[in-house]
């Protein structure tokens, strides 16, 4: 029996939530929220290039993320400007270029609205295969580099002395983020994608005692809010992506209250 489209949307959303838990936690620890946003903004350019060069969309998206990250690494060696300034410039320049390409180039028609907000209810079975393959690759890689990531986040020099190749792990993280963004883009859109990574991790922080707990709780919270969000959106006819983000924020607020009450009852 084929899954109907709401169930399929939930399966897809849970697939994204599984990876966004640990990856979002890493972004929270390493202050990468702005960086994630910049990558997300640049993906429109990647999409246009992919259509222009007739290559697979995902390849276009991932390579543009890597280009942006390299530019950031290049620029941030000059210390005249803060990293978030450079990120902002890169993000909006690439977005602007993407918007120009999307309108000017002949033969390219990009559904801008769908791209900005995503459409999780339009997920097809092939998307599901993509999402869960990416899940497998990203989660396996994260397991492998997990200790190194934690170690270099706590103290980079100490990690280096203990044999962690910090630069390599940083690149791996960027590629993983790019891959996740590429598959999540269709579901949730560039404007909202970073929220899906950052908010569940922040909710998990209120409860977690170890980094691993935080990653797992973030995945659970993400999965629950995706399902609730899709449920709400189909019931009241809200747009699905925004509904998911609002539910996520609601859960964050609840967790804050819960943490306060728990702290008080201990004291």
């Amino acid at each position: 029996m084929p899954l109907d489209f709401i169930a399929r949307a939930m399966v897809a959303g849970v697939g994204i939530a599984l990876v966004s838990g640990p990856l979002g936690s890493i972004m929270v620890w390493r202050r990468m929220a702005n960086f994630g946003d910049a990558l997300a903004h640049s993906t429109l350019l990647g999409l246009c290039f992919a259509l222009l060069l007739n290559i697979h969309v995902y390849i276009g998206l991932v390579s543009i993320c890597i280009v942006v990250a390299s530019f950031l690494a290049l620029f941030s060696r000059r210390q005249h400007l803060a990293n978030d300034t450079i990120l902002c410039m890169l993000a909006y320049t690439t977005l602007a270029l993407g918007l120009i390409l999307a309108t000017v180039l002949p033969g390219i028609r990009v559904d801008l609205l769908g791209y900005l907000y995503g459409d999780i209810l339009a997920v097809n079975p092939q998307d599901l295969i993509w999402i869960y393959s990416v899940d497998a690759i990203v989660l396996l890689t994260l397991c492998k580099i997990w200790r190194s990531v934690l170690s270099m986040t706590v103290h980079e020099d100490l990690a280096k002395v203990e044999g962690v190749s910090v630069a390599r792990i940083q690149w791996i993280l960027i590629v993983l983020m790019a891959i996740v963004f590429a598959v999540a883009m269709k579901l949730i859109g560039i404007l909202l994608i970073t929220a899906l990574l950052i908010i569940p991790a922040s909710t998990a922080r209120q409860i977690a005692k170890t980094p691993e707990q935080m990653a797992i709780i973030a995945s659970l919270v993400g999965a629950i809010s995706v399902c609730l969000g899709i449920g709400i959106s189909s019931h009241w006819d809200w747009p699905a992506g925004p509904a998911i983000v609002v539910v996520n924020m609601g859960m964050f607020i609840l967790s804050t209250i819960f943490a306060r009450v728990a702290a008080k009852s201990i004291a």
Partner: peptide
């Protein structure tokens, strides 16, 4: 093999990390 004790350490409050887990990061 080298052991390094850096000058001070500041773990961001947004990273939950017990002393034991910190020690285990030595691998």
């Amino acid at each position: 093999r080298m052991g390094y004790m850096p000058q001070g350490l500041l773990v961001e409050p947004f990273m939950p990390m017990s002393v034991k887990r910190f020690l285990q990061l030595a691998g």
